[in-house]
């Protein structure tokens, strides 16, 4: 297993796990916003986004248009890289390591191996340790999160249900993951191998959870967050930061809503400020009730 992380003691190393996970720490308490153009990227940066996610269509449009959703056109990503000074993330299809190689060559700062795009591989996710660029992956439960971390993900986010403007699935996934972490933390050591078997998760990572009571990487909220209150809810539940996809640029007043969500994530425990920033934001994105979505329309079921 010849990895870049071999021989940690050597000087001036790049792309070590510590550099990747350390970079992920810098996004905590912040908002990462989906953008489809350099113009939107500038609006997001001006509103206080910690990073932008460059993609061709926001999840709500992917849902509406159907068809195969793929990595974005490199020209569009280059335009966004040139437009802002904040980090730029971009999505690849689950298992599509060549799309990932292309994004790394473009100089993208973070790759999202995302269920929002149409999966390219139904059995295997990307070997993320093989890349210099760090990865974020979605998860519905702790087993899934630990498998992704085992593959080399430097950041985990809830899957939620992207493009719905409905926070219920993100809450479900956050409560599931955090609840499973709390359960492991309180178990005796001898039960942990069985826990690892049941979760289908690497044993060493289960041990880490037991010892530290948290994931070894940053744990973000994503999938259906549309209002400042949604964002603060996810923070109060115990997540580290927020991804907002369709919620901003599918709303009436993207600039104002983006600024409000940024403030809500910083001041998530201050109801006075939350009340103030929630005021007069115009119409949020319309949203979809999950019980009207058929199982095959649910993006969170992609990946294992």
């Amino acid at each position: 297993m010849l990895r870049t992380m071999e021989n940690q003691a050597l000087e001036n190393q790049v792309a070590t796990l510590q550099i990747k996970t350390g970079f992920a720490e810098m996004f905590k308490g912040g908002v990462i916003m989906d953008v489809v153009s350099p113009e939107q990227a500038r609006i997001a940066q001006a509103a206080g986004a910690t990073a932008v996610m460059a993609l061709e269509r926001v999840p709500a449009d992917i849902r509406r248009d159907g068809g195969v959703a793929r990595m974005s056109d490199p020209q569009m990503i280059k335009g966004i890289l040139a437009a802002v000074s904040i980090p730029v993330m971009a999505k690849v299809r689950i298992g599509h390591f060549v799309e990932a190689q292309i994004l790394q060559a473009l100089g993208v700062d973070f790759i999202d191996e995302s269920e929002v795009l149409t999966p390219a591989d139904e059995a295997f996710h990307i070997d993320k340790q093989a890349f210099k660029v760090p990865y974020v992956c979605g998860a519905k439960n702790l087993g899934e999160a630990l498998r992704r971390i085992g593959e080399g993900a430097a950041m985990i986010r809830t899957k939620g249900e992207a493009g719905t403007g409905n926070v219920v699935e993100a809450v479900r996934h956050a409560r599931t993951i955090l609840g499973e972490i709390r359960a492991i933390a309180s178990k005796p050591l001898e039960e942990l191998m069985t826990v690892a078997r049941d979760l289908q998760a690497p044993y060493e990572l289960v041990l880490y959870i037991h010892k530290h009571g948290k994931l070894p990487v940053v744990n973000m909220a994503a999938g259906g967050i549309a209002t400042p209150a949604d964002a603060a809810l996810m923070m109060q539940l115990g997540l580290d930061g927020v991804f907002v996809g369709s919620g901003i640029f599918k709303s009436d007043n993207p600039e104002k809503r983006a600024r409000a969500i940024v403030k809500a994530v910083t001041h998530y425990n201050n109801p006075d400020i939350l009340a103030e920033v929630s005021e007069d934001l115009g119409e949020p994105m319309v949203g979809i009730n999950l019980d009207t979505l058929e199982l095959k329309e649910r993006l969170a079921t992609r990946g294992w």
């Binding site: 990895r3 992380m5 940690q8 070590t16 796990l17 510590q18 996970t21 350390g22 340790q129 085992g150 080399g152 690497p202 060493e204 990572l205 041990l207 880490y208 530290h212 070894p216 990487v217």
Partner: peptide
Amino acid sequence: MLRLVQEIWIYNPLE
């Protein structure tokens, strides 16, 4: 895998 976990442990400021 073990190496990965050890590395994660190394950077944890609580350690």
